[in-house]
């Protein structure tokens, strides 16, 4: 991914932010997508003109992270719902996050412009 990011011209700071978005989403999938046990996550990285696109798919329970309510970070931590913070960070770290349900798969796409 880092090599392709350099080819696209995405600066290092934005790659670190993309890295964080990927970690947060992958963690979320590992925790919640497969309540029955093991499952897989697929990662695809591609270039679309001046944009680096990372697509993560899973076959877990349907869940749209872009539609999830954002936590109110001014509230005391004890009153916040768990897991919300990771998704909030994920959404703030990249230029665009999109979601689609493709058959039995969740597909989350991150776009980072150079």
């Amino acid at each position: 991914m880092t090599g392709l990011a350099a080819d696209v011209g995405v600066p290092g700071e934005k790659v670190a932010r993309l890295d964080l978005a990927i970690e947060e989403w992958a963690t979320n999938v590992c925790r919640y997508a497969y309540p029955g046990g093991n499952g897989s996550v697929w990662v695809a990285v591609r270039r679309e003109g001046p944009t680096l696109v990372v697509e993560l798919s899973d076959e877990g329970s349907p869940f749209d992270p872009t539609a999830a309510a954002e936590p109110d970070v001014s509230m005391p931590l004890s009153e916040r719902s768990p897991g919300g913070l990771g998704l909030l960070l994920m959404r703030r770290m990249v230029d665009e996050v999109s979601y689609r349900r493709d058959g039995h798969r969740n597909v989350v796409t991150f776009a980072v412009r150079s």
């Binding site: 670190a16 932010r17 964080l20 970070v73 001014s74 005391p76 931590l77 909030l88 960070l89």
Partner: peptide, 16 residues
């Protein structure tokens, strides 16, 4: 500093 500072700010940890 940098990304770490930003993550603390987004999360509201600066006040906690």
């Amino acid at each position: 500093k940098g990304l770490v500072k930003e993550v603390f700010a987004i999360s509201g940890f600066e006040t906690v």
